[in-house]
Design a protein around this nucleic acid. Structure first.
Length: 334
DNA sequence: TTATTGAACTTCCCAGGGAA
DNA sequence: TTCCCTGGGAAGTTCAATAA
């Protein structure tokens, strides 16, 4: 993110709230506290009236009478905004649908008819399909979680744990909601486990507000928490090294799967993919998806797990073959 | 009423990384 | 090589809450 974008985000964030701590801004922008102070200093130099309230319960704020004039948008930018609106509101159960619609209608009101027409023409020539965000299915759940995250208040939930096939009541301090790979997840401090854990929202069977305030664990950073996760679940950190054979090698090197990844290209067309990964469960599925075109070199434990998985698969297919032959014989008899 | 404490803003110096 | 940006560390200042 550029310094300019960060500064714009700071202004927008401060304008929408009454008092914001520098640390909160740093977390939101995923940057350092001192960078926030420097950006605020730059904004003040540019005559943006950012005031500070020192001491306990202090923070930064922009006086209510300050009005930051919206920039003039190009037809392309307007088209992109309406396009995003089409995707989010019409098809995907966007959780802030009502606010988004009013924001778009406000924007429309500021535009000339010709600008709206140009934008509509641009949208009609593009289509884009993404899977549903499915928030409507759990609208009330989302409302309570989102409310408790912003008010920093704990929740009591009944949560279904897939691995143990049991429902357990837990008290959670909700930190963050994240949508990844077709599912919503809640990152929260679990009072029962005494650590920050990830919960799938659709496995929450019931939810109650406790009204008890909480503080985010000191030193917790969402970016650090998720930095080496393959998708969403976490586990012990491990250095994973995989050899990919063509054509999978060409596919793998096209993408950035993890920020820590390194790829060494060999003369024979294979690649050596290495990365630091938090938890092996998800990367195991990813590697298995490439079948015979991937070979785990490290760690040995993952190599053995995949080998055992392949043996099990082989057993299924050979026994299915026997069943298939038996069934054929039965058919011939009839 | 005053001293203490804790939280948050403020400022400085230094080092590392990337772009020019 | 230089400059700019960013982050680490540390010390100082301010102010509200709390205890004595």
């Amino acid at each position: 993110m550029s310094k300019f974008s960060r500064m714009m985000d700071i202004v927008m964030y401060l304008q929408a709230r009454s008092l914001v701590k520098a640390q909160e801004l740093a977390d939101m922008l995923e940057t350092d506290l001192k960078t926030v102070y420097r950006d605020i200093e730059s904004l003040r130099t540019a005559n943006i009236p950012i005031e500070a309230k020192s001491g306990r319960y202090g923070g930064f704020y922009i006086p209510k009478d300050f009005y930051f004039k919206a920039p003039k948008l190009t037809p392309e930018e307007i088209a992109v905004l309406f396009f995003a609106g089409e995707i989010l509101v019409k098809k995907n159960g966007f959780m802030f649908e009502k606010d988004f619609k009013t924001a778009l209608s406000k924007l429309k009101n500021t535009l000339a008819k010709e600008e709206i027409n140009i934008s509509s023409d641009k949208i009609s020539s593009i289509s884009y399909e993404i899977e549903s965000l499915k928030t409507r299915l759990w609208e009330n759940l989302f409302y309570i979680i989102e409310k408790c995250i912003s008010e920093k208040k704990s929740i009591d939930v009944e949560y279904y744990t897939l691995s143990r096939d049991e429902v357990k009541r837990r008290t959670l301090d909700p930190y963050h909601l994240i949508y990844k790979n077709g599912a919503w997840y809640l990152i929260a401090f679990c009072h029962w486990r005494k650590e920050v854990k990830i919960f799938r929202v659709d496995r929450i069977k019931s939810i109650d507000e406790t009204g008890i305030p909480f503080k985010i664990k000191k030193g917790f950073s969402l970016r650090d928490y998720l930095k080496n996760s393959w998708q969403i679940t976490r586990g012990e950190e491990a250095d994973v090294v995989v050899r990919f054979f063509p054509p999978a090698s060409r596919l793998v090197k096209e993408m950035e799967w993890l920020p820590t990844q390194k790829i060494i290209e060999e003369k024979d067309g294979t690649i050596i993919f290495s990365a630091k990964v938090s938890g092996l469960m998800e990367i195991k599925r990813w590697i298995l998806g490439y079948g015979s075109q991937a070979e785990v070199l490290k760690p040995q434990s993952l190599r053995e797990e995949i080998s055992s998985e392949i043996k099990k698969m082989l057993k299924h297919y050979t026994s299915t073959g026997k069943r298939h032959k038996t069934a054929e014989k039965e058919d011939n008899k009839n």
